[in-house]
């Protein structure tokens, strides 16, 4: 910057403004990134506390082929934002499973304190619906014991 009054009064040749000609390009780049990565949510999250597991893996299936079955602490079941009694789970999941050409993966999202009785009941319903691939949704557990293996 030139010092006013005294000193050299040469004008700086560097522009003092942020160049705005590439602004649109940057905006479009970001726009395309978000358009490509956006997946519109299919159901709302239920308020559950996640169980933690160190072996947590990403589900190897397209997002549209994943069906969330929420199991709350009191054993209530939520599928696609609707509450269903336990006995209807197989009737709800069965047609969806057939419609996906047996590609559907069920993500069982159960609260960490849910009694196993309900999980087992859900599991039996899923077996009778013919579902094979099931994932117990968990959060990745950070290991504090250093590197494994």
């Amino acid at each position: 910057m030139a010092i006013k009054g005294g000193g050299l009064d040469r004008k700086s040749k560097a522009a003092s403004e942020i160049p705005s000609s590439s602004l649109a390009d940057i905006a479009f780049l970001l726009l395309i990134f978000f358009m490509v990565t956006t997946v519109f949510r299919t159901d709302k999250d239920r308020p559950i506390e996640w169980a933690q597991a160190a072996a947590t893996e990403k589900i190897d299936e397209k997002v549209k082929n994943i069906l969330n079955v929420w199991v709350e602490r009191d054993g209530s079941i939520w599928i696609n934002d609707r509450n269903y009694p336990m006995s209807e789970v197989s009737e709800v999941v069965g047609p969806l499973y057939a419609a996906s050409q047996r590609h559907l993966v069920i993500s069982v999202r159960a609260d960490r304190e849910t009694p196993y009785f309900y999980i087992d009941a859900v599991q039996k319903e899923l077996v009778s619906a013919g579902v094979v691939r099931v994932v117990f949704a968990t959060e990745l557990e950070r290991q504090m014991r250093g590197i494994r293996r």
């Binding site: 726009l31 978000f34 358009m35 990565t37 956006t38 997946v39 519109f40 949510r41 597991a53 072996a55 947590t56 893996e57 990403k58 589900i59 997002v63 994943i66 993500s107 069982v108 599991q123 899923l126 077996v127 013919g130 579902v131 094979v132 691939r133 099931v134 994932v135 117990f136 949704a137 968990t138 959060e139 990745l140």
Partner: peptide, 19 residues
């Protein structure tokens, strides 16, 4: 798109149920 984007958190322990 920034506002509506939700990065899916589809992770867990996979099991295979018997037919």
């Amino acid at each position: 798109f920034l506002v509506t984007t939700v990065f899916p958190k589809d992770r867990g322990l996979a099991v295979v149920l018997p037919e």
